[in-house]
Each structure stands twice: as structure tokens, then as C-alpha cells.
Design a protein around this nucleic acid. Structure first.
Length: 420
RNA sequence: GCGAUCAUGGCGAAGUGGUUAACGCACCGGAUUGUGGUUCCGGCACGCGUGGGUUCGAUCCCCACUGGUCGCCCCA
């Protein structure tokens, strides 16, 4: 038996790394005053159709959708924002005293795709959403948080790319201009671009095959279509980033795959060696119309999401060692039947006193028990044999120094507490 | 969804149309009747992703399926 395609089991040895990363992200969120929200991993299919957008790849071909026993169309969430906004509206969080509402989430997402390194059918995203503020400083805060998530874990080779998609008006005007621009030469474009023309004309600008087509150079840029408000907003976001000392590049061809984005869009990519075709670590942007689209009051929002899998890939690509303590305080060795019983009691006593303690359960020879203790990185080995039992002591060996001494059995816990 | 490639013990990795499927690491035991290392000796795949087919006979040939990886698409 194997797990379904595109899924993975996280086993002891790596779960510790995940826990470390997750704890870091939660700590980071707390410092920026973002609070955790947990939403269901499945939702009504309609939420994503309306929220993410009917024309997106996610909705058109990547969703895990099924009908439940009550004949409802259900979808495993492919991303986090739609659910968070739905919850924000449903529970009327816009009415709370503290605004903007700053939320973070972490959990599994599902997309039906052809898996490869860094692209899973079930993957874990951490993301934040700030709802209720249309301040360029808010955009900068979210970007800063995203960058720090990587920086604080030790990553160096990062590239922050930003762009503005403008407000809805700017965006739609630009889209139409692109369609007008490329339609006359549609037949000369590659098949991908011909379908992009309807779906997502901005993508054409990114095409590798049609890079040299004459229409490329003359294509209208989004920046030309930004109205005054949009242009000014984008400039202010950059001013805030500059003030915070966050380096970025503006890429006017940066397009996000989800329909709800407007104004600020950004992506963080890894420059590290050994990254394949997939270099995007996280992405986000502003979505001022989404709350209203999902039935709430007109409320601006901005957020981003990162994949823990890709974050961990980046850590490995940059050879970042996470400071994970895998040692054990004590390992108790028993020799003889009588000692075994006493050793079990002492082990339990040490554990209750807070020591990470283990013992042998395979009736191994003393030598083998020492090897086991060594493998487990035990700091102290406690040996209880017939001699010790007779004298009511237990031998305590410091595995690092090699020193060993006998300690009275009824003193053992306080003795260990004293030296640990 | 399209194209390519791969699949042998816990891990890495040889291999051949035909008696007992190399080797390395790890693990277990012994040399060393109670101390972690080294060395030496021994043990460890009724089995070569799954299911069919070809054949006197297949881990090795063919087909399908499943899964991994890479590229495209797209993204996190």
C-alpha cells in the first residue's frame, strides 16, 4: 500500500523540523499581532468559484470536488484566503472593536496537479490576512512579515518581486487593451497564448515561445493604465518598503493566478542553487473587492501565503541547520530480573520529575544497551545491576566526560535534577 | 492535462532469459560472564513496485496500472 499520489507522510526526524518551523511562524505572527484562525479544510464549492474566480486554473482544473451524502458539492480548500474571508463575513468580525482584523492560519491545502518536487496534492500553507485597512503601510507590513518568516529561519537567497495590478478599473482597462493589442495577431501566437488571450492576457507577456514576437515589445504595460490613486498607492508601498530597508524589484509582468487580486501583488522567490523550475516560495497581494463579493461590507484586505514544503526545500538548498535538540536526559540500564523492575520504577520517577528518560525494552546485553543510549544521545546513563541493588545505589555515568559515580537510589531524582 | 525517465533488502546500489540475487551502510549476535569506540567473525531479500502476457523457464522481454523524478502548463 502506498499513500495517494502527491501526498506525503511526515515521520519522526522530520516532524521535529516542521514543529520548529511552525513554532517560529506562530511566534512571528504574535510579534506582528496576527491571531490564529482555524477554518474547515472543506467548504462549499461555490465559495472557491466565487472567491478564487471561475476562470482561474485552480477552479477550472485543480480542485478536489465531490458530492457528499446530502448531495452538496464540497471542495477541499485549494487556498486559504477565501475561507478566511468567508469566516470573517459569517462571524461579522468587521464589527469587532479592534480593526483592522489581523489573522494567520496554517494548515493543509489541496490541489489536483501533477506532483513533483515542491508541488504536492496536499501541502501546507502558512498565511496571513489583514482585513479592514487600505493603508500602504499595511501592505508593507504584510510583505515585511513574509520576508522575515524566511530571514529569521536563516534564509539568504531571497528575491522579492512586487507589482501593482491597479484597482479594478485600471486592471480591466489594461486587460481590454491587451486583448485589443494581441487579437489581430492571435494566429501568430503559440497555442498557449491563444488560450491565454481569453483567460489571462497578462500571462502572454511572460511567454517564452513568443518572446520575440514584434507585438511583445509594443504591448501596453499595466503601469500605463494605473489611475492616479493606484499609481500613488503603489509608490507609497514602495516608500514604506524603502523605509523598512526591504529590497525588492518591480516586475510589471508579475501576475498572480487568482482573480481577486488588485493593487499590490508580490512574490518571494528563492535564488538558491538546486531549485528546479519551481522557485516561488510564497505569494500574496491585495484583494479589496473580495469581502463584498462574499457578501460582506466593503472591506479592503491584503494577505499572503507560503508553503512550508517549499520553505523547507529552501532551507535544505541553503544548508540551514535548524537548532533541534534531539538528546535524551537519561537512559536507564538494568541487568537482571530484579533490577529490571526497580529500573522501570526509577525511569518513571525521573519522567515525572521532568527528565526525558528512556530504557531498554528488548532485553539487550549491557553493551548493546550502552550503544542504544549513545544513539539516543543520552547525557547520563544510569546502570542498575546486582551489585548496585545490593548496596542500594545506582551508577550514574556522564556520557560526555565518561565519569561515573554511585548515587543512593532514593537520592537519584534530586541528584539528576542537580546536575542536568 | 501533455512529454520524458525511473521503480531491486531499513537505506544506498550492482546484476543476469535458467542452479544459493553482488557489494556498502545500518541493524542483531559473538570474540569481550557488567560499559559507549576500533578491529575481526557470523547473521540479515521463498524476493527484485502491482497485475497480466511471451517463454520449457523471467527480477531481467512485452502490455496495463500505481508511484517517484524532470520538463511544459500553472502556481505555494
Amino acid at each position: 500500500m502506498k499513500g495517494p499520489r502527491g501526498t506525503q507522510d511526515l515521520l519522526p526526524g522530520v516532524t521535529e523540523k516542521w514543529q520548529y518551523v511552525e513554532a517560529k511562524l506562530k511566534d512571528l505572527s504574535a510579534r506582528y499581532n496576527y491571531h490564529e484562525i482555524r477554518t474547515p479544510i472543506f467548504e462549499h464549492t461555490e465559495l472557491f468559484q466565487r472567491g478564487v474566480g471561475d476562470t482561474t486554473d485552480i477552479v477550472q482544473k485543480e480542485m478536489y470536488t465531490f458530492t457528499d451524502k446530502g448531495d452538496r458539492s464540497i471542495t477541499l480548500r485549494p487556498e486559504g484566503t477565501a475561507s478566511v474571508v468567508r469566516s470573517f463575513v459569517q462571524h461579522k468580525l468587521f464589527g469587532l472593536a479592534n480593526q483592522p482584523t489581523k489573522l494567520f492560519y496554517i494548515g493543509p491545502m489541496f490541489r489536483y496537479e501533477r506532483p513533483q518536487q515542491g508541488r504536492m496534492r496536499q501541502f501546507v500553507q502558512f498565511g496571513v490576512e489583514a482585513l479592514g485597512s487600505e493603508d500602504p503601510a499595511m501592505d508593507a507590513e504584510v510583505i515585511a512579515l513574509a520576508m522575515n518568516a524566511y530571514r529569521e529561519l536563516g534564509l539568504q537567497s531571497l528575491k522579492l518581486v512586487i507589482n501593482s495590478l491597479g484597482d479594478t478599473e485600471s486592471r480591466n482597462n489594461h486587460r481590454q487593451a491587451l486583448i485589443d493589442h494581441f487579437s489581430p495577431v492571435k494566429e501568430e501566437l503559440c497555442s498557449d497564448c491563444q488560450s491565454r488571450l481569453e483567460k489571462n492576457p497578462l500571462r502572454i507577456l511572460d511567454c517564452k515561445k513568443d518572446r520575440d514576437h514584434p507585438a511583445m515589445g509594443t504591448a501596453p504595460s499595466i503601469l500605463e493604465f494605473l489611475n492616479d490613486y493606484s499609481r500613488n498607492y503603489f509608490e507609497q508601498v514602495q516608500a514604506y518598503l524603502d523605509a523598512m530597508g526591504i529590497a525588492y524589484v518591480v516586475d510589471k509582468n508579475l501576475v498572480r493566478g487568482l482573480d481577486y487580486y488588485n493593487h499590490t501583488a508580490f512574490e518571494i522567490m528563492s535564488d538558491a542553487e538546486g531549485f528546479g523550475a519551481i522557485t516561488t516560495l510564497s505569494g500574496g497581494g491585495r484583494y479589496n473587492g473580495l469581502v463584498q463579493d462574499l457578501g460582506g461590507p466593503e472591506t479592503p484586505g491584503i494577505g499572503f501565503a507560503l508553503s512550508i514544503e517549499r520553505l523547507r526545500m529552501a532551507l535544505e538548498a541553503e544548508n540551514v541547520e535548524l537548532p533541534i535538540d534531539q538528546s535524551l536526559d537519561c537512559f536507564v540500564i538494568a541487568l537482571g530480573d530484579e533490577a529490571k523492575v526497580k529500573a522501570a520504577a526509577i525511569t518513571e520517577q525521573l519522567r515525572q520529575a521532568g527528565m526525558q528518560t528512556d530504557k531498554d525494552y528488548l532485553d539487550r546485553k549491557m553493551k548493546a544497551q550502552f550503544k542504544a543510549a549513545d544513539r539516543l544521545k543520552a547525557r547520563f546513563v544510569l546502570v542498575l545491576g546486582e551489585e548496585e541493588l545490593e548496596n542500594n545505589v545506582i551508577a550514574v555515568k556522564n556520557m560526555e566526560s565518561g565519569e561515573q559515580e554511585n548515587v543512593a537510589i532514593d537520592q537519584i531524582t534530586s541528584y539528576i535534577e542537580g546536575i542536568i
